[in-house]
Simulated scan of single mutants.
Amino acid sequence: MVNVAGPQTRNTATLGGHIVAALVTSDIIPSLIAAECCVVVAGNKGLSQKSIAAEDFFLLDRKVAIQADEIVLSVTIPLTKQNEIFAAFSTHTPHRRDDEVDHVNAGMRVRFTSTGDAVEDLHIRYGGIGLIAAKKIKDDICALNKRMWDEMLLEEVYKIIRKHSDVIITSTKVIIEEGAMKDTEEFQLMTMKNYFFKFFNMVMQEMGKEKIDRNQRMGLSPLRTIKGTQTWQTHTVGAVGEPLQDISSRQISTGESKYLDDIPRREDELFLALLTSSRPHAKIR
């Protein structure tokens, strides 16, 4: 855990503090909104309580619907309904010794009609792109309700993301100026498309339909390949000193990297902890 976030985050982080901070790079807020969660707020020294939908709780970047004398008491997370599928996606920075920052993240939920052949409610909420861009994309995607879950819907979502690219770029520049994130706009757009493509195929698999070929994963426009070289003094014997590709680089940049929290728990799993001795060469009795 020493490689995850900074000491302050590791020692004091809480869900309540995370959502009240309402950072634009939060990977929890988009999921809370997409899952239709509610934030329970207590005020008047605990004598009064109210429940606020997550959609209405987050007003602006770093601003929430809570008064100075109120605190977050709890978060209500609803169970998944019948014919409903939910998923969350995030891409983390490789510099994990510093404070953990998300490049782009998303919470996605789709609910089908009782017959299961048409979309009843599609809710996609992106994070890390600014609140204005996230709301515009979410509102346009909601207009796709009653559509069939097919390649035409996939293309429509791609078009909506590209349609609001100017707003995304503007929001990104603001975030870069604040030092919170240093991604290129094109990387953000490709990652957003990639997230929905993964969600689309996950839903297709749940429905028992054939998944789309992975070559279409980055959207309608062809992916621009960036090539580069790295050289230094090499050795002719063995692999020592030879340039090797970082295996995790592609996984991190595409949002496919897995961490311990992504691995499902097992009933018979064991935990290992490393303990250090306070005395050198001590004998264990």
Rank of each mutant, 00 (worst) to 15 (best):
D102A: 14
G17I: 04
T115L: 15
G116E: 02
N105K: 04
F57G: 02
E36V: 15
R111H: 03
H123W: 09
V75L: 12
K136N: 08
S74H: 03
A42I: 04
S51C: 11
E36Y: 15
L47Y: 08
V41M: 06
A106D: 00
A133N: 06
T14G: 01
G16F: 11
R97F: 07
I129L: 00
A54V: 05
L23I: 10
I19Y: 10
K136V: 00
K81A: 09
I28D: 05
A35T: 11
R62Q: 13
E100N: 11
S90E: 06
T113N: 15
T12S: 13
D102H: 10
T12L: 15
G16Y: 13
L122N: 03
I52H: 10
I29K: 10
S90I: 03
H92Q: 12
C37P: 05
L32P: 03
E120L: 06
F86E: 07
D99S: 08
A88L: 06
K136D: 00
L131C: 14
I66E: 03
T80P: 10
F57I: 00
S114W: 09
T93R: 12
Q82C: 04
A65Y: 11
A21F: 14
F112L: 02
G128N: 05
G130Y: 15
A13T: 08
G46A: 02
I71N: 05
K136T: 03
E120A: 15
V24M: 13
I19H: 11
A54K: 10
R62W: 12
K81L: 14
K135Q: 06
A35H: 13
H103W: 12
A118C: 11
H123M: 05
R96L: 04
T93F: 06
A34V: 09
T91L: 03
